[in-house]
């Protein structure tokens, strides 16, 4: 199949037809920060952190397909500030108290904030009232930390295709609801997968956590995305 040529921040890149800009960038060693994106899942385009400019127009790199001759900008001061703003919005929208979180050090939201050098969000904390739900013998749902990325909605289904996690309500009330009956029926592997796929500490497998000591966790030493950049 014909190769597609495009530039990302002036760097000539090649891509395969059907790839997204995010995938093409990754293949070229360029990390476009993203949060809701998870390899192998249909992108939801919900976090907007991968917003880039394509021929001057904003678009989410995770959903935008490549095309011949595209001029993509990603590491501009304007876009980097907007990405940081989106991360900061998430920090004030939910209740993210990192010191007590099982996912701290392995959390992708936190890792992005580290990468962007966030010391304090520019926005006022909202102190949303949310709950902690015991949804099955195996799983906890910590809604305070949920960023509604929808990875779990997409990925965790019953063998007959029913969704265990589902978006409920709308606007600022949006929440990821869990089907108690279906969640109770999840096998151990799927329940562990649900925790692993959650970018933050919202879906928790009970009775685990804090197993890896500080200093040896995923993002303790090297920033998120550095694996792509060092390729």
């Amino acid at each position: 199949m014909a190769e597609i040529k495009l530039t990302i921040d002036g760097k000539p890149c090649t891509a395969r037809p059907g790839q997204t800009i995010l995938e093409a960038a990754k293949a070229s060693g360029i990390y476009i920060p993203a949060l809701c994106h998870y390899e192998g899942l249909k992108p939801s385009g919900s976090c907007r952190i991968c917003t880039v400019k394509v021929n001057g127009r904003p678009a989410a790199a995770c959903t935008q397909p490549v095309a011949e001759g595209l001029v993509v900008e990603t590491a501009t001061p304007e876009l980097e500030d907007m990405r940081r703003a989106l991360v900061e919005m998430l920090f004030v929208e939910g209740n993210h108290f990192c010191p007590s979180c099982e996912k701290s050090g392995n959390c992708e939201l936190q890792a992005l904030a580290y990468r962007f050098g966030m010391l304090v969000p520019r926005f006022p904390y909202q102190w949303s009232v949310r709950e902690i739900e015991s949804v099955s013998p195996r799983l906890l749902m910590e809604h305070n930390r949920c960023i509604q990325c929808r990875r779990c909605v997409e990925a965790i289904r019953t063998p007959d295709g029913r969704r265990v996690f589902a978006a409920q309500e709308r606007s600022g009330r949006l929440r990821i609801g869990v089907d108690p009956e279906l969640a109770a029926g999840l096998d151990e592997d799927t329940a562990r997968k649900a925790m692993a796929i959650c970018p933050v500490g919202a879906i928790l497998y009970k009775e685990v956590g804090f197993a890896v000591p500080i200093g040896r966790r995923k993002y303790d030493r090297s920033p998120i995305g550095s694996d792509i950049e060092t390729k």
Binding site: F91, N95, F97, C98, P99, S100, L119, V120, P121, Y125, W127, S128, V129, R130
Partner: peptide, 18 residues
């Protein structure tokens, strides 16, 4: 200078904020 999570974002005591 705000030093530490509690000064920056309320921290553990702010768990009561809801």
């Amino acid at each position: 200078v705000a030093v530490g999570e509690c000064a920056v974002m309320g921290g553990l005591p702010a768990l009561r904020n809801g």
